[in-house]
Nucleic acid binder design. Structure first.
Lengths: 210, 210
DNA sequence: GTACTGTGTGTACAGTTGTTCACTAATGTG
DNA sequence: CACATTAGTGAACAACTGTACACACAGTAC
């Protein structure tokens, strides 16, 4: 008696394994504590198959970081398309961020875990995605000419701080259950205020210091 | 042949186990991936002893959070004592933070990991320590009368943002090797600029929005 | 059609894991 | 001093772990 062996597409098992790992993370497990057997079991695949696709768990983590990059780019594109009026820019961006964080909960959980994770490579990968995100944000801000008085390096710093603040709100967001609308709205409001405070700082930056 | 059994003090093994876990974290392991046997081995103690002191690894993690609270309070006290001139407040505080982060590297690694960790209880404990820290900071700022124009809730928000920014810099700091003075100085400068930006924002908060 | 390669399967094994149990020595209390 | 309590020990166990090996089948190249 042979379990069906169809091999429809190359890389099918690979995706099953990656989403199995994400599923486990979504269930509250920490990526660093996942084992090969556990992931293959969740994927409905025999343990040996793992080695056909990945060298070890760190390798799988690295490939998850790549996919995370795609998720972030999608989010960025949607934010750009929705920037209708400049005065609602912050609110709308935060809303898009929150909806993406909920739609890709496991991905963002993985990201939050990886920032202080076990694998240096994964850590560096996530950090690099965040830097990219911040530099894109700096470009957008420059294009919108809302902060013309800032030097490039000050603009980079501002974007960096924005991205970090949002990333920290992310860990708040992932801590509450997905249906808790009251708490989610609290986090939303707080994040918006953080960003407003930062932009007020940026608007008055040169006039005060440096 | 009996290994020495002296039992000098009650709770001696308990401390050995806790610092063994910290040591492993300091060596790059993630707390969530530590096992009971591994910790007892590092502590030079037989596995059974673990159960005399903790119910499971989460329990140990919770008790580490308590000790982390002490570390943070020490840091806060030192910062308060060193606040000589108000205009150097940010620089001096960041310096104290950096030196404490290096002196208690494993503790802060544990903290950074726990923020997105596996145990909800540990997560909440660390978050609560950060909230406490932020509220103490708000008290200090109120006392110094540097931000008199802010409402209590705006002051709380500002302190919260400050603490989060510093906490994020912490993960930068823990990512570089302890001797890399150049990178450490970069992080120091960037953190200082973040805080300056936030305080510029706070100084101009009411005049612009809300 | 035949051979090769890539990707899946099943079996196997030694090492590690968490946890239980019965035991023993040191300490504090009366 | 006797005695209960506490905090350590070592041996045992079944369950699980990562990894290796030989094998099977689909697809492609010749």
């Amino acid at each position: 008696m042979m379990a069906e062996r169809q091999r429809r597409k190359p890389g099918e098992t690979r995706e099953k394994l990656m989403s199995a790992a994400l599923t486990l993370v979504g269930k509250g497990r920490h990526f660093a504590s996942l084992g090969i057997r556990e992931v293959t079991r969740q994927a409905g695949v025999v343990p040996t198959s793992f080695y056909r696709n990945f060298r070890n768990m760190d390798d799988l983590g690295l490939q998850l970081v790549d996919e995370l990059g795609l998720v972030l780019r999608r989010m960025m594109r949607e934010a750009r398309e929705h920037v209708s009026q400049a005065d609602k820019l912050i609110e709308e961006s935060v809303d898009i961020f929150i909806s993406h964080a909920q739609a890709n909960r496991s991905f963002f959980l993985f990201m939050a875990q990886g920032l202080a994770g076990e694998s240096r490579a994964v850590q560096e990968g996530i950090r690099s995605e965040m830097r990219f995100f911040a530099s894109e944000l700096a470009n957008d801000l420059r294009r919108l000419r809302l902060v013309d008085h800032l030097s490039d390096s000050d603009l980079d710093m501002t974007s960096d701080l924005v991205v970090r603040s949002v990333a920290f709100s992310l860990t708040d967001l992932l801590g509450v259950s997905a249906g808790d609308d009251y708490q989610i709205d609290q986090i939303r409001k707080r994040t918006i205020r953080f960003l407003q405070l930062i932009f007020v700082g940026a608007a008055n930056w040169n006039s005060v210091s440096q």
